Each structure stands twice: as structure tokens, then as C-alpha cells.
Simulated assay, not measured.
Amino acid sequence: MASLEIDALNKTYGSVRALRDMTFDVRAGEIFGFVGSNGAGKSTTMRIVLGVLAQDSGEVRWDSAPLGPDTRRRIGYMPEERGLYPRMKVGEQLVYLARLHGMDTAAARASMERWTETLGIEERRGDEVLKLSLGNQQRVQLAAALVHEPDILVLDEPFSGLDPVAVDVMSGVLREQAAAGRPVVFSSHQLELVERLSDRVGIVRAGSMVALGGIDELRTTEHRRWAVDGPPDSAWAAGVPEVRVLESSGTTTVVEAAGTGPDEVDQAVLRAALAAGPVREFSLVRPSLTELYRDVVAADVPAEQVETEEGAA
């Protein structure tokens, strides 16, 4: 399968610039985590991909060709706001949506049965959507995105309102879809889940992509840090060139090094700690995606972009 390419999208609502040269791609067989604060531009980007909104400039491509109506029919979309018919029965609704995407009745019914069983809502096929719990409505919404066997998945906050068991089920479905070669892009505020599930992550702020890459790549800091569980006094670190103590609590000391090659520095840190006493643990420390996100989002935003944070979708 091909890649989904978002190339230099710009979108303005009146005086508010919602997107500023938004650019990234979602590769075949990849799960792409799309994160940012409310109003950062995630939903606007997804709606442009779907054709619900029109961009002011830029392009969305699939297999190097601009997306048209036929291609967009092959997208499985899950909006943040539930887009289901509340008084329609679950099974009937899913068959109806599959038929709208071009499936014949038999194939649509078979797909409905498959996905309701996979997502654990087969016993709810005869229930109206409005009578379901919020978590089960979310499962039906995912089934609606999958029932026509799409080539691309675009999911806006798919894990919202789900219990841990449902999160595991949905995570498994996304992994299976990616393993089948489909590009999967999803947004979520649950950053630990994004870190665990995604192959690559894009962090959006004020309509712009400000960090993009694989989890390990994004978590690699300019200066290496180590946690040492050993000597109770961090004074041992003072003798290591170009190393500073970031924190010290009990027997654990976290140090950061700059300048010297990493292999030489880590050995120097370990030798200094061992000289001061027994070392029980010596490990490289990398920031979590949550810490990275806080740093990126908290960075100074140019004055002309502040209004985007307040008003963009």
C-alpha cells in the first residue's frame, strides 16, 4: 500500500490561522500518533484529509496523487464527536454505512458481524446507539470506521472514554490494521498510550508541526543523562569533567553530561560512582513522551500564533 502525504497545508478562519504549512506523512503499515493541545490543529488537519474542510493552500496525496472523492471513500474516519445515528440500531447502521461505501448487502452484513464480534459488541447489534454506554458507542464508532474495509485509517481521539480492556482491544485492532499495510493516524491526549502504540509521533503547536519522528528519536536528548543508584552522597560526581548533578535523592543521583563522547563519559561516571561505594543500578535516562510534549508545548510561541491556540479547531 501507499503513503498518505500531508504537504504544506494552510487554513485560516477569519483572522485565526489554524494551520501553518502543516506537513507530514503516514507510511504504509505505520501507526502515526498525532498529538497537541486542544485547538492546535489536529482535527482541522483530519477534516481536510477527509474533504470535510477545504484548505487555503497545500495538498493531501495518496500514492503520490491528490486525494479525490474515490480515494476518500477508502478512508476509515472516526470523528472526535460521535457521528452515529442515535436512534438507529447498531447492526442496521453499520450495514447501511458499509453500503454507502460501495459494499453489497451480503458483504456489508458479513463485515458488520465480524467487527461487532471483534470489538465485543455483537450482543448490541439490535440496540439503538443512544441506549449504549459511552464506551460501547465508541466501539460502534470504530466499527463504523472499519466496516467498509478501508485502505487508510484516520481516527480522532479513538480511545476517549474507553476502559482499560477496551483500550487493549482497540490497540490490537490498530496494530492489526497497520500489520496489513494500512497507514493509521490517530490523535490522543493519552500520551503514554501514544508512546506505546505509535511507530512515529508528530507534535503540533499553534497549527504547526514542531516535533516529528520515531519515539526513540524524539526521546534522544542533546546531552545524555544517567541515573545512578549507589553512593548516598552525590559529591562523587563533582570530579567527573563536564558532568553536572540534576537531582539527588537518597541513594539515587541523576547526572547530565555534555561535550565528551558518550562512551567515555558514561564509563567515567560509572568509575567515579564505584570509587565512592557500591552501585546497584546504572541506567541511561531518556525523557518520556509526556515530558517531551510538555517541553515542546510550553516553549515560547510567537505572538502572532497565540490567537491560534485560543481559537483554532
Rank of each mutant, 00 (worst) to 15 (best):
D7M: 08
A8H: 14
A8P: 10
N10K: 05
N10W: 13
N10E: 06
S15T: 15
V16M: 11
V16W: 12
R17M: 13
A18L: 03
L19R: 04
L19H: 00
T23Y: 05
F24N: 02
V26Q: 03
A28C: 07
A28W: 01
G29L: 04
E30K: 02
E30A: 03
E30C: 03
E30W: 01
F32G: 00
F34Y: 03
V35C: 00
G36K: 00
S37H: 14
S37A: 14
S37F: 12
S37P: 09
G39A: 03
G39D: 01
A40W: 01
G41T: 11
S43T: 06
S43P: 06
M46W: 02
R47C: 05
I48K: 02
V49Y: 08
L50Y: 08
G51D: 06
A54N: 13
A54L: 14
A54M: 11
D56L: 03
G58R: 06
E59T: 10
V60M: 11
V60Q: 08
V60P: 05
R61N: 04
W62N: 00
W62P: 01
D63R: 10
D63T: 09
S64P: 14
A65F: 15
A65Q: 15
P66C: 05
P66Q: 09
P66Y: 06
G68W: 08
P69Q: 00
D70S: 13
R72A: 02
R72C: 02
R73D: 08
R73Y: 09
R74P: 05
I75H: 02
Y77P: 01
M78F: 06
P79W: 07
E81V: 06
E81T: 07
E81H: 13
L84I: 05
Y85M: 11
P86V: 03
P86Q: 04
R87D: 15
R87K: 15
R87V: 12
M88Q: 07
M88E: 08
G91S: 10
G91Q: 10
E92P: 06
E92G: 08
E92I: 10
Q93S: 06
V95Q: 07
L97F: 15
A98M: 11
R99K: 15
G102A: 14
G102Y: 14
M103C: 12
M103Q: 10
T105M: 12
T105H: 15
A107Q: 06
R109P: 03
A110N: 04
M112T: 09
M112D: 02
E113N: 14
W115R: 07
W115E: 02
T116I: 10
T116W: 07
T116A: 08
T116Q: 04
E117F: 11
T118F: 10
L119Q: 09
E122A: 09
E122H: 09
R124V: 10
R124I: 06
R125Q: 07
G126E: 14
